[in-house]
Amino acid sequence: MKFGVLMFPGSNCEHDAYHAIRKVLRQPAEFIWHQSTDLRDCQAIIVPGGFSYGDYLRTGAIARFSPVMGAVRRFADRGGLVLGICNGFQILLESGLLPGAMLRNRGLKYVCRQVSIRVENARIPFTGLAREGDVWNIPIGHMEGNYTLDADAFRWLERNRQVVFRYCNPDGEITAEANPNGSVANVAGICNPRGNVLGMMPHPERASEPLLGSEDGVRLFQSMIQSRSQA
């Protein structure tokens, strides 16, 4: 399955994602510049982490207006797989492809460490090889990961099973202590109602080889690949 990895000025995780797809998953991948409107027959798009446009105005706020995001929106509308990681998640929120917004972390500090996340929905193309309740060990590194949404909209999100990952302790329990940034209900990742667009703060590409301390991120990419080989 061919992956397209977007590049914005200020992206800095695009090579990590590209490496994970090419060298670990052994799948074709190609970089796509933010000025492009051609997704070159890719079957999945990764919106990578970093500091697109220096995080000016708000994280993801300027990237949203890039030409490539129009193409990504049309791709998502047709059911294409879109994965936003960290700053990529923030861009998907600003673009309206996913609901809600990010606030500064509760502690006002950049948090960079390994966390545990629990798989809450294993019925979407990104988690098909996992089981609900699985605990993944994946790193985070962000300043604005404090996900927020008004209470009514959040209830709707939960009813729709759009919460895909929550921060948990190593035993899989959702506790206040396990929440690194103050995110509502420990949310670490959400999807759109159709399940083909996923945004997550943890970095699966940084947890894809034994050398990196965890391979749990590979299951996410493998799930994506398998979902399309069945289709």
Partner: peptide, 8 residues
């Protein structure tokens, strides 16, 4: 459209 995110 640009300066604010109406969610927050």
């Amino acid at each position: 459209d640009v300066l604010t995110n109406p969610v927050i």
